[in-house]
Every structure is written in C-alpha cells, then in structure tokens.
Design a protein around this nucleic acid. Structure first.
Length: 205
DNA sequence: CCCTGATTCGC
DNA sequence: GCGAATCAGG
C-alpha cells in the first residue's frame, strides 16, 4: 500500500470524522486492518474501542522489558477526545449504527487522484438493492464544516455535497451538482457514497 | 451470527 | 512500514 500524503490525509480525515475502520477501509479500497494499523502508526487518536486486549497471548508472549508501575502522576485531562465539530443535523457518524449507508457527513475518497472510485465497486459492488434513503428524521443537510468556503452557495437549490479534494486544501470544494431528491449527493456520487455493509466477507477467502 | 476496533507478528 | 491474522467486546 502506497501511503501517499493524500491517502493519509483522507485516512486522518475519515478517522476524525468518526467513521469505523472498516468503513474507512472500504472507502479507500483497503482492509480495515490496514486502516487500523496505519492509524495507530500515525498516532491517530484511538476511538471508542469495544475491547481492550490485555489477557495473555496464546500466540506469542511478547516479553517486553517488564513494565514497572512507575505511574507518572497521570492527570485526568482525558476529556472527550471526540470533540467533533458537531454538524447541524445528522450525527458525525455513529459507529454503533448498523446496516447504515455511508455517513453523510463523512467525506469519501475524493475523486481527485483516488483509486477508490475506480475500484470501489470491485469489492463493494453495490447492487442498489436497499436504497440508502436517509433515515426518517435524520435529514442530512448540507453540513459543511469549518472549511474555507469560497462560494457558500450562490444558488438556493440543493447541491451535491460530495467533497472534492481534501478539506483544508485550497482547491477543496463540493461537487455542487443537482442531487437526487432525498439525497445529499448527485446520482453519480450517491452511488459511491452509499455503500452498504455486509459484503466484504466473501471477497476475502 | 453480525458488527466493531486493537494488538501482534511475519513479511 | 505494512497488513493479515488473531483476539476480544457488544
């Protein structure tokens, strides 16, 4: 895996967005393991992990240089590391949600120089069976983050909010095309935006 | 069973 | 450094 700056940037962004590792992986056309592994190496803030491995390892007992209980006066500043910008309506991305289409807030792989778009259908191959219609009540508005918005929205009509480029980058902007009624993305991007779960199990064998 | 993320370890 | 395998909790 060629972890270019762009990919890493996207990973970070997606990670910060609160997407699950598997979700990010799907979007970047990589495995969740790769995502997690890289995320850790990058020193990204760990997200609510359901577990905390600590028992003994049957595989290999990594005998480290014993860990003394040097407890260095651990502070308590550990507040909610999430501290998400909290978008207008929809939640950032609740990992707890199951069978959910791609979080509207999250920005998928930017079409610009991103293999995901070309390969995404490879593993995800959305059959378009279950229309990822926004959950009743959860109206995905055009939640723009605190990014530099050159043109907020000249037009009043809805615009595809598919992110082009990376947030924070000078050339960053949104698709802006006319979205599908009921969806925040245009038909083109809606296809790749809404990726249903339960699919990459069989791919890998 | 499904999902999730974390860690370990061979490469 | 990378990621599959594995572990582990909901």
């Amino acid at each position: 895996m060629e972890w270019s700056e762009e990919i890493i940037a996207q990973l970070k962004d997606l990670w910060a967005e609160g997407l699950s590792t598997a979700e990010i992986g799907r979007r970047l056309s990589i495995t969740k393991n790769a995502v997690v592994g890289k995320a850790h190496r990058l020193g990204l803030p760990p997200r609510p992990s359901p577990i905390r491995r600590n028992g003994s390892k049957p595989k290999a007992a990594a005998d480290k240089t014993d860990t003394p209980t040097a407890t260095p006066t651990a502070p308590e500043a550990s507040v909610a590391r999430s501290a998400t910008p909290t978008p207008p309506a929809a939640q950032p991305a609740q990992p707890a949600v199951t069978a959910t289409p791609a979080p509207v807030v999250a920005q998928p792989a930017a079409p610009t120089a991103t293999p995901a778009l070309s390969v995404v259908d490879d593993k995800t191959a959305r059959k378009e069976k279950a229309a990822p219609v926004a959950r009743t009540g959860t109206k995905p508005k055009t939640l723009l983050r605190s990014i530099s918005d050159p043109e907020p929205q000249k037009r009043r009509g809805p615009a595809c909010c598919w992110p082009i480029g990376d947030p924070g980058t000078p050339g960053f902007h949104f698709c802006g095309a006319t979205p599908i009624p009921g969806k925040p993305y245009c038909e083109e991007h809606a296809q790749i935006a809404y990726v249903r779960l339960r699919d990459r199990r069989d791919s890998v064998a």
